[in-house]
Amino acid sequence: MYVLKHGIKRNPEKRWALPDRIFFGYGACAILAGAFLEHPSLEGFYGERIIPGEGFSGNHIYATNGVIAFDYHGYSAREQLLEHHKRGWASRNPGWHCTIATVDFDLLDTVELNRRKMLGPDQYLHDPVPRARRFLRRIDHAEGAARALRTVTRSQPMLRVACTSDPT
């Protein structure tokens, strides 16, 4: 798990200068998921959010169809993405836990994102939506999804992740 140096997220120039994967993985994940869901390359995807327990960091938003997921890593088995995220945060924060919730708001709307303590598209140094769209165009979505689906079928039974699902 990559850890940003202190102060980068608060410095608009340094944040914008991060490589795409780090930029979208550490602060702009909602923008990437929102751009993905604007015109999904695959059917049946929706947004999901990892909400850390009270007092913990580790919020993350990704797109999923319930089996595979898409985020700054590309495509992966949803359960593997959740396990990777949990393991990374729990290794640095004993007792870390989370809730998984379906996203029920516009991921490209500043007001909605601010309500959830995330930056909206117009709060970055430059507009991150075109950057997210360029990032998405570089991906072979059919191949990435097929590869992720193959990992799901090989890893039966699926992993159990210690996050609870929000029924809403």
Rank of each mutant, 00 (worst) to 15 (best):
I61R: 04
H84D: 12
G74H: 03
V67Q: 08
Y62R: 01
P94F: 14
A90G: 04
F70A: 02
L81M: 15
W89H: 15
W89E: 13
N65D: 15
H97T: 12
N65Q: 08
H60A: 04
A63H: 03
A90T: 08
R92G: 09
P94N: 14
G88Y: 08
G74S: 08
H97Q: 13
V67F: 04
L82P: 03
F70M: 03
R92F: 09
W96N: 07
A63S: 09
K86I: 12
V67M: 09
W96A: 09
N93T: 13
R92Y: 09
I61K: 02
A90N: 09
R87P: 01
A69T: 01
N93A: 14
H97M: 11
S91Y: 06
K86Q: 12
L81A: 07
L82C: 06
A90W: 07
G95K: 13
G88M: 08
T64G: 01
R87C: 11
L81C: 03
T64I: 01
G95Q: 13
Y72C: 15
L81Q: 06
A77P: 05
T64E: 00
A77W: 01
S76F: 03
A77Q: 02
I61S: 03
L81T: 00
P94Q: 14
E79Q: 13
A90R: 15
F70W: 04
H97E: 13
K86H: 14
F70H: 02
R78V: 02
S76V: 04
Y72T: 07
R78G: 00
N93V: 10
A90I: 07
H97W: 12
A90V: 10
Y62M: 01
S91M: 11
N65G: 07
S76R: 13
Y75K: 07
E83K: 15
R87M: 12
W89R: 15
A69I: 04
L81W: 00
K86W: 12
A77N: 02
H73D: 10
H85E: 07
T64M: 02
A63E: 02
I68E: 05
P94Y: 13
G74W: 03
L81N: 01
K86S: 12
S91W: 06
H60N: 05
K86V: 10
N65F: 07
T64P: 02
E83M: 15
I68R: 04
N65S: 06
Y62H: 01
H84G: 10
H84M: 12
N93S: 14
S76C: 10
Y75I: 07
Q80N: 14
E83G: 10
Y72G: 04
Y75P: 00
K86A: 13
F70V: 01
G95H: 10
N65R: 07
R92C: 09
V67G: 00
T64H: 03
H97P: 05
